[in-house]
Design a protein around this nucleic acid. Structure first.
Lengths: 240, 240
DNA sequence: CGCCGTCTTGAAGATTCTCAACACCAGTGG
DNA sequence: CCACTGGTGTTGAGAATCTTCAAGACGGCG
């Protein structure tokens, strides 16, 4: 069976000029491709495995005591899951598939070995991980200081840019399998208010969120409304 | 002139059993101690210097287009400033002193050299940086899904725990130089609402925030109210 | 067909914000 | 010495935003 790691390649090659076969080291024969469900993901990570998403979306989240859920981030093809958890033992949040998901499973030891064989690859991966932290900072700002309209617009613009950077979207549209409930849990809003907000964005002629697809009806105006700056997603090569 | 790096030592030794002189390598003769103002901090970081806070608090923040400010985090003694910025070129936020601050300035090259001489130290520092990311996730959850009362309680509990871990606070109280405005900008609330919330916490007999000092009047009840779990601050040793 | 998850809309209510006013204090200059 | 100023903290009242509760529509799937 063959599978594509286009997304991963695109993502990492934005950071360093890695030959394709070096990236392929991450996906060795010992790695397994599987259609992941929630059980497989959490089981795998607690067994010291990381995952690379090949197809589909996964959400990382944390449940609160009162039943509320905060989605920390959506993870798209090319993203790593569980990197920090297995390398650094810090965990405390869970993963759930947002759509049908194909992942590549990597045992911790294989990951460490690969990083030792290719420090360039290791640097690229850590570099990508650091971008994820920048994304989280932006989410913090988004939730802390923007109202529902600009917050939603900003988030959907970010997801669009991330999809585009791995070749899965255009400036016009991208597939977004998240439900309105999940979007609400990511943005710290109720699903009902997300619904009203999406309607407003649609009525303003800016963006259509429908049938698992986001269409930018007026990208320029949308970027202006959300004050979206792609900078934090589109970083230069690392210095070290 | 002598100065203390107790806080840094306590922080790093929680992650690895580092001898004191190895930690001292970070603070070489070439490093300078200075009372930092905003100008010095931002200038230093754009000149490829990192800082270690020896005394006082610093806030990292981002200004939005409409003038709103989101404080990303407060940084306390023992914390690094600008690590990611100078090593990985990702920046986009600014720093401002919250109190009088003494820092130790480290040139990028010295930092890289030190890390090569002591991989254990490098691991400990990156480990500490990864804890910072866990803190940010917790802030995201806090802002996204908790109301003003539990959000404020949780945040002040976290700051107290962090201060205690570097020997600057007890289970009863700690110095907190942040103003109510700054606290509001950190929590995504207006300063006025912070004021009312603090009053409520005081009237409930849980916590007193006054004269630059936080006193836990009823720590157990406070922890219960905020569902505070110290786990994310108190990690085990890294695996790698 | 009936059921479940998702989407949609209305109305009432809660939380939080904005505006406005005032107290307090430290510093500053007359 | 005192008035003035700017930063911080405090309180009230009205307004905006967002949530909750409730109900119904729609489609996929057993």
């Amino acid at each position: 069976m063959t599978f594509s790691f286009d997304a991963l390649e695109k993502k990492l090659s934005a950071f360093a000029d890695l030959p394709r076969d070096e990236i392929g080291m991450l996906i060795s024969e010992r790695a397994r491709v599987l259609l992941a469900d929630e059980e497989e993901l959490s089981q795998g990570i607690s067994d010291h495995h990381a995952f690379i998403i090949l197809e589909g979306w996964v959400a990382s989240f944390k449940l609160l005591e009162d039943g509320a859920r905060q989605i920390i981030d959506f993870h798209i093809p090319g993203d790593f899951l569980g990197l920090r958890t297995i390398l650094l033992r810090t965990s405390d949040h869970s993963f759930v598939p947002v759509s049908d998901v194909t992942v590549c499973r990597i045992a911790k030891q294989d990951l460490v070995d690969t990083f030792q064989k290719s420090p360039r690859l290791a640097a690229a991966v850590f570099w990508a991980a650091s971008r994820d932290e920048a994304i989280m900072v932006e989410h913090l700002i988004n939730i802390g200081r923007r109202d529902a309209l600009t917050r939603t617009a900003h988030y959907l613009l970010e997801l669009g840019a991330r999809m585009r950077l791995v070749g899965l979207g255009t400036f016009k549209e991208y597939d977004c399998p998240a439900t309105q409930y999940q979007l609400g849990d990511a943005l710290g809003l109720s699903a009902i208010h997300i619904n009203r907000t999406l309607r407003k964005l649609r009525e303003m002629g800016l963006l259509t969120f429908q049938d698992g697809r986001v269409v930018f009806d007026d990208l320029d105006e949308l970027i202006k409304l959300a004050n979206f700056d792609i900078g934090y997603l589109d970083q230069l090569e690392p210095i070290i």
